[in-house]
Design a protein around this nucleic acid. Structure first.
Lengths: 128, 128
DNA sequence: TGTCAAGGTAGAAGTATGTCGAAGCAAGTC
DNA sequence: GACTTGCTTCGACATACTTCTACCTTGACA
C-alpha cells in the first residue's frame, strides 16, 4: 500500500451491522491517517487557528520536526481528505474538512444525530 | 512501544483548542488501535453480535487469519480499553465498551450532544 | 531573467506493526 | 491423571511507517 486512496466515506455505525472487509479497509485508512500524534496535533492546530485555516509556516514552528516531515504528514492528511490545501501567493493555507470528521464520528457511535452526520453535504465532494 | 497504555481518555474536541503533545499521544494510541481493518471488523462483529458479545470462536471464523493473529488483535483492542473479555467456562466472551467509542466520537466533532458523550460515566472505569 | 523563500518530492535508514508456527495455560471430559 | 479443545504468549520474519538529508518546484520581486 502506501497509497491511501479514500474515495467516499461509507459505512454504517460500528455498533450496527458487521463491517464488510472493504468498508473496514476504507475506514481503517482514514483512522490510520489520524492515528498519529503529529497529525492529530496538526489537525487541531489547523482547526483551532484563527479563521479555521493555517499556513504551513504556522505549523512547522509548533513541532520539533523538519519541514519535509511536516509536509509528509500534511500529505497523508490531504490524501485522507481530512484537510484541503490552497496556495495564496508565497504561502499555502490548509483548512480541515469537518464533513469527514463528522462521518468518522458517526461511525463510532450509533446515535449521533443526523444534523451532525450531515454537517456538510458529501455530494459537494470534488476532491482530486 | 508495543505497550499501548491508555489511562483515561482526555481531550477536548479536535476543532476546539490545539491538542497538547500528551493529549495527542494518548488519543493517537486509541485511534491506532482501531486503525486496522481486522480490528475494525472485530469491533463491529462483537458489537453487532446477538447480546452485544461474541466468543473468540465466532470471530476467528470470520477471517482468513490464524488464531494467534486474531488473539493479537483482540489484545490490542483490550489494551486500548475498547473491549472487555470474560471467560465463561470453555469460551471467552468479548464485548465492546461503548463509552470510549463515544468519547472518541466526541473528539472528532465539536458539537456532539452531551447525552452521547456521556453514554456511560467514565468514573466507572476500573480497567487494569 | 536571476535570486530568494516557502514547500514539496525522492530515497534511505531505523523502528514499529502484522502475521505466522510452536509452545504453553485453563477448563471440560473420560 | 490423561486427553481434548479453546485461546494466549513467544519468537521470528516481512512489510509498512516515520523521519531525515538532499534536491526540485513555484511564486514574488528587483
Amino acid at each position: 500500500m502506501s497509497k491511501q486512496v479514500v474515495p467516499v466515506m461509507c459505512c454504517s455505525p460500528l455498533t450496527g451491522a458487521p463491517l464488510s472487509a472493504a468498508e473496514a479497509a476504507e475506514l481503517a485508512g482514514v483512522f490510520k491517517a489520524i492515528a498519529d500524534p503529529v497529525r492529530l496535533r496538526l489537525l487541531s492546530l489547523i482547526a483551532s487557528h484563527a479563521g479555521g485555516e493555517a499556513c504551513v509556516c504556522d505549523l512547522t514552528g509548533a513541532f520539533a520536526l523538519t519541514g519535509p516531515t511536516i509536509s509528509h504528514h500534511l500529505k497523508v492528511l490531504r490524501e485522507a481528505r481530512l484537510i484541503d490545501g490552497e496556495r495564496r501567493g508565497t504561502w499555502i493555507y490548509y483548512r480541515v474538512r469537518p464533513e469527514l470528521l463528522a462521518q468518522l464520528s458517526a461511525v463510532l457511535v450509533h446515535d449521533v444525530p443526523a444534523a451532525v452526520r450531515a454537517d456538510v453535504p458529501l455530494s459537494a465532494e470534488a476532491a482530486t
